[in-house]
């Protein structure tokens, strides 16, 4: 079991013929992801990596029964690609592309309204359920099927925590990168809801950053009622100099953004265990689960 994706997930790739599209489709295919086609306007009818190419997402969905899409197109085409996938009922839409303009994301949010599609990203490493399905660009070197749901704004820290949770023998149910941009698809709160209902997931790790309000929304949700599973959070950027912009664009939120300490306090008040640094996360989760 896993959240959002699994063995039955059939994936198409938007931007399959590009350098990144080819590389990551090939590596995810080797990992075992069930790809059913690709989309590249103007190349419909051709084949790439032995997969049929379509001009439009809607055609691809109709012909292949795809229920997920991986977007690896250049930034200037990413908005149109996301909107097309959402409108075609692409199911789980994973946008890896980074540098999507903020104003464009307002259009994407409009498209999501009233749609059944779930958007992951943009600027996300994607979603991985070890042994079942990988949609994205993450490393799978240390991934192991297991009990921990991992939600991050950062790809590199996700890899780090996958390695750590495997190292202590816990493994991962699903890892989700919500993306490093200020406006994105599913957030911490959505992921917490999904992991709560997933019987395989025994604990959840949240990796937050300075800026934005993801962590606060997660804390509000967790305060509202018993969650039933331990949640461990790591919030990075505590010492980032205030006058300089560091890290993700999402960290540039001039308003409504609290310090790392504020976020930690709010999460701790909601019952979340706070890891003091990147090395402390998996041991803290292991202790919470095993006593």
């Amino acid at each position: 079991m896993a959240v959002l994706v699994g063995k039955d997930t059939k994936v198409i790739v938007q931007g399959i013929t590009g350098r990144s599209g080819t590389f990551y489709t090939d590596s995810a295919m080797r990992y075992g992801t069930h790809f059913v086609g690709g989309v590249r306007p103007g190349k419909g009818g051709a084949k790439h990596l032995d997969l049929p190419i379509f001009d439009k997402v809607a055609e691809a969905v109709k012909e292949t029964g795809a229920n997920a899409s991986m977007i690896l197109v250049p930034a200037q085409n990413a908005t149109a690609a996301m909107v097309e996938a959402i409108e075609a009922g692409g199911g789980v839409v994973v946008c890896v592309t980074e540098r999507v303009p903020v104003h464009d994301m307002m259009r994407v949010k409009d498209a999501l309204k009233g749609s059944d599609s779930r958007l992951i990203g943009p600027n996300s490493q994607g979603i991985l359920s070890p042994g079942l399905c990988k949609i994205g660009v993450m490393s799978t070197t240390h991934a192991q099927p297991g009990a921990i749901g991992i939600v991050t704004r950062s790809a590199s820290l996700a890899s780090e925590l996958v390695a750590q949770t495997s190292g202590v023998g816990l493994g991962q149910s699903t890892t989700i990168g919500v993306g490093g941009d200020p406006i994105h698809g599913i957030g911490f709160r959505d992921c917490l809801e999904l992991f709560k209902e997933d019987p395989v997931t025994k604990g959840v790790i949240l990796v937050g950053e300075i800026g934005g309000t993801e962590e606060e929304e997660a804390a509000d949700y967790l305060s509202a009622g018993p969650y039933g599973k331990p949640v461990v959070a790591l919030i990075v950027g505590r010492h980032a100099p205030k006058e300089r912009r560091m890290g993700h664009a999402g960290t540039l939120s001039i308003f409504g953004s609290k310090t790392v300490e504020d976020k930690e306090t709010k999460l701790a008040d909601a019952g979340v265990l706070i890891a003091k640094n990147a090395d402390a996360v998996a041991p803290l989760m292991a202790k919470a689960l095993r006593g």
Partner: peptide, 27 residues
């Protein structure tokens, strides 16, 4: 890349790991 005043050069991939490493060095 952001130039700062210290004496430990950081060579890190990824924004999140970059921030996490930065925090740990200062701590």
């Amino acid at each position: 890349f952001l130039k700062l005043d210290g004496n430990i050069g950081l060579l890190v991939n990824g924004a999140g790991l970059g921030l996490a490493t930065y925090d740990m060095v200062v701590d």
